[in-house]
Amino acid sequence: MLVAIALAVLFSLGCALIRAYLGPTLFDRLLAVNVVGSLTVLLIALLGFIVGRPEFIDIAIVYALLNYIGVVAVLRFFESGRFGASRRSGEEEPP
């Protein structure tokens, strides 16, 4: 049962990979990465139950947090085009 679910998750992982490869716009690819991250979280939680070590759920939660940070970073890149200077330009002290 659990293995069947894991295989289904792997199948949808494959679909997300196809989207990441074909994806005409960058947002398709960003979404594909996000989907792959979420499916990885699911897969790790499932693996924990298949192998009989439910404490793997902790790792899955850490992955979910990392996924979130990565997507926020990418979206911030889209918003400003750069990471460093755009936010701090106001704090600049006079020369």
């Binding site: 990441a20 960058l26 690819r29 594909a32 990465v33 990885t40 693996l47």
Partner: peptide, 20 residues
Amino acid sequence: FAVIMLTGIYSLLAASLFVM
């Protein structure tokens, strides 16, 4: 940019393989 996204996917897959 797409290559960066793909390397992110690659390391997520590698991480789940390591969990396996």
